[in-house]
Design a protein around this nucleic acid. Structure first.
Lengths: 323, 323
DNA sequence: TTGAAAGCGGTACCAT
DNA sequence: ATGGTACCGCTTTCAA
């Protein structure tokens, strides 16, 4: 492998000039430039990224932290990787598997300058601890954080959940159950607030066992149906799901249990993923791609030197065949 | 941010000794070691990764190349990230979007020493071109490659497809259609061979319009059903899918078209993903996680200095309710 | 056991 | 426009 020094010697110029050519400096004569470029071609030269990173103190890499990669995360990830790539930033995935130690490794990598910035999709460490890393580089979060140092790109799910609830009530459903996600997360809290508000406003019944939490995926959704069936006489008419995958699980298990959707059980998903479209699930359109792009835009001042304008975010209801 | 030099000065030792402490060299007295460690603690010191990478010529990063991240890719990715992580290797995702130039960037990064090795999930560039990069670091592929320099961890799908075909025939289905993936890929070719062999052996009909290719996802699957319906009188009894997601699309669209599964149309998926389980799809169990681990194991001689034993791979048929 | 110094491969400031 | 050179922060060989 050839290096800058060799190119310089062969071309008969200094390292400095060769470096200028590499960085498209205007202070190189056309003649010199082409001469040096020719030699680079011949030697099949490419600059060593580690040397550049060390010298510049910037790696052009962004770390992205998630406890696990599922389909929801994927939508975010895909968009983020794309927008970051447009600005020549690469994305490194850190999956923690809910392991605090492992998760912290990502933050250490910010400190060690392996990555220039960090995006949190979901995390398990204490936010007070995590925010101490802010001094090493910019950090944004998808998951809503209860901390001022780490900004979040997520929307308040209160509005989105409200849309779903109003839709159900307008359709005449009154016995409404919930399958929430993370028990104490801000999102779940927002949803619970919306639910409590609407139910009280319309004077509708709220039963203890109509509220499930820690429901994340297809299997969890299946389990919810089996569980609800224990209370035959207090069966809900509709259920709001933490995401579309939970909705898929509920639909499939409901069918297996010979329940008709939506006659016996109406279902509303969340996120409007591909699968919701395919299976005809009524859901809340969640602009995940826009949020992923916003994540990069929020990092942009420190990464590329200027602020980019954030996408405006808005929920909407997609009515299909499950309500 | 503190560096090695500062630690050395404060401790009253040389950089070399501090470096030895960092790398757990046995040639440091216990006293010196603890003294230095204490100072590192106080200054909240962590070594700079770029400096280490530059000096050692190794980055502990592995690039993984895919045209797009879908749920199938995800299964592979997840396992790979995990096993690589166990050996302190990080994974960088390169999504090409089928763009040859963009894909080549990943290979350039091997040359530039941004990554120590490369894993190809799917790629679009000419294999002769790609194999020229082998001299810069180890490369393995999931997608089968028709090139000796780049080894593949994938299995020959002939056997897997055979299982599916035999199952259908044993169940009495004779009019069998195919939804293949990439038109000229080795996998598709293997499947076509299996299909041709079986159909001829059993003297079964083969119709031109029963063979679809470039069918990858849910939407493609839906389209296949709509297309098949044009030939009402030559409708197949069963269809083999390139993967489970295609199967999902076919099932959902079939239901929408009021076809009964499996009475009007039997369906066999491929891969045995979570979704196949949920929707009760008969499918071929494809050990994706094992293949991802094997990918790392194949890189291991050049990455960690010794060969790891590969998982044995085997297909099996999972019978559910769609056949 | 410890230290001095030459790399690793670039960047960027200061001269000329 | 070009060159000289001091970094960037760590590793590693050779001596002591």
């Amino acid at each position: 492998m050839s290096n800058l020094d060799q190119i310089a010697k062969l071309a008969g110029f200094s390292k400095a000039t060769v470096s200028r050519v590499l960085n498209n400096s205007p202070h190189v004569s056309q003649e010199t430039r082409s001469k040096i470029l020719k030699i680079m071609q011949e030697l099949d030269y490419v600059p060593n990224r580690n040397a550049i990173s060390l010298s510049k103190g910037q790696t052009l890499q962004i770390g992205i932290i998630t406890s696990t990669i599922n389909e929801i995360v994927l939508a975010f990830l895909n968009s983020f990787v794309e927008v970051a790539g447009q600005y020549e930033f690469q994305t490194i995935i850190y999956t923690s598997g809910e392991d605090k130690k492992k998760e912290l490794l990502a933050f250490e990598d910010l400190k060690r300058k392996r990555v220039d910035a960090l995006v949190i999709i979901s995390c398990v460490n204490d936010t007070d601890l995590l925010s101490t890393y802010c001094k090493y580089g910019p950090i944004v979060s998808w998951q809503r954080m209860d901390h001022t140092d780490i900004r979040s790109v997520a929307m308040d799910q209160y509005e989105g959940y409200m849309l779903a609830l109003k839709h159900l009530i307008q359709k005449g459903y009154t016995r409404i159950a919930n399958a929430f996600g993370r028990p104490r997360s801000i999102n779940t809290h927002s949803r619970q607030r919306a639910y409590a508000y609407i139910m009280e406003q319309h004077n509708l019944p709220v039963l203890q066992h109509w509220n499930y939490s820690s429901i994340y995926n297809i299997r969890d959704g299946e389990q919810v149906v089996r569980d609800l069936l224990q209370y035959r006489d207090e069966f809900p008419q509709a259920i709001l799901c933490s995401n579309d995958y939970v909705a898929v699980g509920i639909i499939c298990e409901a069918r297996r249990q010979l329940l008709n959707v939506p006659e016996d059980l109406a279902i509303v998903g969340f996120d409007n993923t591909e699968l919701a479209h395919t299976m005809g699930i009524t859901t809340i359109q969640n602009p995940i791609a826009a949020q992923a792009q916003n994540a990069f835009y929020m990092l942009s001042p420190q990464l590329v030197g200027y602020q980019m304008e954030l996408h405006p975010l808005q929920y909407s209801l997609i009515e299909r065949t499950t309500t």
